[in-house]
């Protein structure tokens, strides 16, 4: 029998990871929901973001999470650039072509990273936040607590932006009907570019937070891509709330798989759940209807 305190500890840890996953997946959900682009390179933006955070942390000798101040606006601009260069030409193309192009983009990112920094994992050697606090037998990483907190705040801000601002209204109108939106004076191409920028910026935020305790390698993006898509599938485009719940579920599933089977099988548990979800609830767990 497993020690219940250990299990609780791991589940709490999983919930914190889940918040971070939600943050990253929200970027993907926005991109997929608003412009119907199938982005297989989303996780690779996280990977590039992680290297950027690591480089800046090494240069200024600050905790990687602090570098988000620079990487988030930087990636917003990079995101818009990539959108103009690669994504806009395949808007409305067959899914297969979109997948091909974004897989190609991911390959380019991975191998730029491999060429520049090689395969050995990189991490910041002196993170300020990588210590733990304990209470009643439960031990949690401060870095993960802070990452979870910032993730929640960011999710709320995006939710607020989508529901309460004029730009949010334009985003929702575009995602509801991209033929009618332009008739209402919405510049669809601009909405797309900004949405892609925001989606990319969120990966940079997630990456910077993650680097406070984690390490990156050129292939970090692959699991982030798949996990983000699993969360989007579960969330069923049910808005920020759906993404949040789905991220938490994924985080907990991963923790349970890691605890009860073995850490190397944690992804298998999540993906098996993904199979069952697609087969039996193809509209997601939190679909709006």
């Amino acid at each position: 029998m497993m020690d219940p305190i250990l299990v609780t500890n791991n589940v709490l840890d999983g919930l914190l990871m889940g918040l971070l996953y939600s943050l990253v997946a929200l970027g993907l959900a926005l991109i997929f929901g608003v412009m119907d682009i199938i982005n297989f390179a989303h996780g690779d933006f996280v990977m590039i973001g992680a290297y950027t955070a690591w480089l800046l942390a090494m240069a200024f000798w600050v905790d990687p999470s602090v570098t988000a101040i620079i990487t988030v606006p930087l990636f917003f601009i990079i995101g818009i650039g990539i959108y103009k260069l690669v994504i806009e030409p395949v808007l409305g193309a067959e899914p297969l072509i979109q997948i091909a192009v974004t897989v190609g983009l991911g390959y380019v990112f991975q191998n730029i990273a491999l060429a520049l920094w090689h395969a050995e994992p990189k991490s910041f050697p002196a993170p300020w936040l990588n210590f733990s606090i304990s209470a009643g037998g439960i031990t949690l990483s401060v870095a993960k607590l802070i990452a979870g907190g910032i993730s929640i705040i960011s999710l709320y801000l995006i939710h607020y932006m989508l529901t309460k601002t004029k730009f949010g209204l334009a985003v929702r109108a575009t995602s509801a009907n991209r033929e009618v939106a332009p008739l209402m004076g919405i510049n669809v191409k601009k909405v797309y570019a900004i949405t892609f920028g925001i989606g990319t910026a969120l990966t940079a935020l997630g990456a910077a937070l993650y680097m406070s305790w984690g390490q990156t390698n050129p292939y970090l993006g692959q699991s982030f891509s798949l996990l983000s898509w699993v969360i989007v599938a579960m969330g069923g485009l049910g808005g920020v709330i759906g993404v949040l719940y789905s991220g938490l579920i994924v985080g907990v599933l991963e923790a349970l798989g890691s605890t009860f089977i073995t850490p190397s099988a944690r992804l298998a548990v999540v993906y098996l759940a993904f199979f069952l979800l697609l087969w039996f609830r193809p509209r997601g767990l939190f679909a709006r209807r």
Partner: peptide, 18 residues
Amino acid sequence: IPGIHLLIYGLLLIIIGI
């Protein structure tokens, strides 16, 4: 330059896709 061949794959894929 490790991974240079895969970099080329990626670029080819983007170019062909577009």
